[in-house]
Design a protein around this nucleic acid. Sequence first.
DNA 1: CCCCAGGTGGGAG
DNA 2: CTCCCACCTGGG
Length: 284
Amino acid sequence: MPFSEKFALENSPFFTPSDFRETLDGGQSFRWRQVEKNTFEGVFENVAARLILEGSGKVSAQILKGADKKSAAKKIAEFLDFERDYASIVKSCADPRVKAAAKKFPTLRILRQTPREAIICFICSSSKRIVQIKQCVGLLSKYLGDEIAPNFHALPSFEKIANAPDEVLKSCKLGFRAAYLKRAAQKILADKFDPESLREMPYPEAKKYLLTLSGVGEKVADCILLFGAAKFEAFPVDTWISKSMASLYSLKSPKDARAFASAQFGANAGYIQQLLFADIRANP
DNA sequence: CCCCAGGTGGGAG
DNA sequence: CTCCCACCTGGG
């Protein structure tokens, strides 16, 4: 057990236990696993941590023994997006369907992953279940990423992925996504593209670039931008959101769903997407 | 054993 | 532009 003592995270917002789980393990990120009730273990950037939801509703953390507590706490606060006022987003939306979903997930948040993490994980995600995606990115990290501690590995760099032997990628159980991921990594390097720049780029421009990467279509690009670059105007349409938009608004195509979301939800579309996603998944 | 999954790419209509 | 299906693989 290489973890430090537990410490409270300053400015932690409140979570309900189910929203805590939904946020960390509901399809936004694939790097966290529940180890006991209200406790998740995982890696963010180069920080291995245990996040504990206290009875108070606030989050505490344990990090690896010897790691810098102050900088880890800061990274965790960013990752869980402590600064953003989600209640005001819901307040500003008059749609009764959105209000109803928000009532069921009152403390849901959007995780702020890094652009690299989001690119890797969502290219791996296509046509896979959450458990399988977690397995793939776990293996990728184990075989190609830096070891932070026994059983805790960072995600690999694009250099490592671009130069990885096909057998290694194959052993990560990526299937046809292996070639997508490798080609995307190679193109990012060839373009000398800094994924971090996605955070500063305007949404349309950032999306346009992402769509040039193999294995990245509309849905994956929007996931990368929402979860990896905090572009809240992104509205990823997967099969669940397709179902939701069809039943709530009679919208049949992903294209119509995106246009509607942009017009109706605008700058907050991404968070509303997450509420509708959580709701339809919980009540299919 | 058969089928499909939180998608993309590439070709046809 | 909209269909349609192959693409890997594990699990039901």
